[in-house]
């Protein structure tokens, strides 16, 4: 599955006016809308990088890794919980689960992931453009220099890097 993550700073024809302090120390990570639609899948368990939201579902614990995905932890033996997989979800911040369906934000889209068929990925539905794009960790808004008309067409911000 070709996923092209572009760091905007690498693109030509784009520069922050260096006479001013940049509003954010971060650069956006972009994904094309086409790639966003195929950006959710299971991966092997991995280390935490930026743990955030926590969610309990029976013996399973989900922990969001900000803008990257969701760690799945099998806690059926609390003395030895173990990570079983990672759900790759660019732009994710939060989740909730009902009847083995996990609802999460995939940047601006809401996705419903069927957990019953793990490790096969099954996206039951995707509702497009219902959330604002993620903002830089050091700001509450997206600086105008990164607004959609100043980026390649049909791209969505899915995270921020320094």
């Amino acid at each position: 599955m070709p996923l092209i993550l572009l760091a905007l700073c690498l693109l030509t024809g784009f520069s922050v006016n260096d006479k001013f302090e940049p509003e954010t120390q971060y650069q956006p990570l972009l994904l094309s809308r086409t790639d966003l639609a195929g950006s959710v899948f299971f991966q092997p368990a991995r280390d935490f990088t930026n743990p955030g939201k926590i969610y309990l579902y029976g013996d399973t614990i989900f922990i969001v890794d900000l803008y990257k995905g969701i760690h799945v932890i099998d806690n059926s033996t609390p003395a030895t919980p173990r990570k079983t997989s990672f759900i790759h979800i660019p732009g994710v911040m939060d989740l909730a689960v009902k009847k083995s369906v996990l609802y999460a934000d995939n940047a601006v889209d809401l996705v419903a992931i069927n957990l019953k068929v793990y490790p096969q990925i099954s996206i039951l539905d995707r509702v497009s453009d219902v959330f604002p794009e993620p903002t830089p960790p050091d700001l509450d808004y997206i600086p105008a220099v990164f607004s959609s008309n100043k980026r390649p067409k049909n791209t969505v911000i899915v995270g921020w890097v320094k």
Binding site: K53, I54, Y57, T60, S76, D94, A96, V97, K116
Partner: peptide
């Protein structure tokens, strides 16, 4: 292990 809904934290 597949109850109706799960439980989030206070930051949810």
């Amino acid at each position: 292990g597949t109850s109706e809904t799960g439980t989030g934290g206070s930051m949810a």
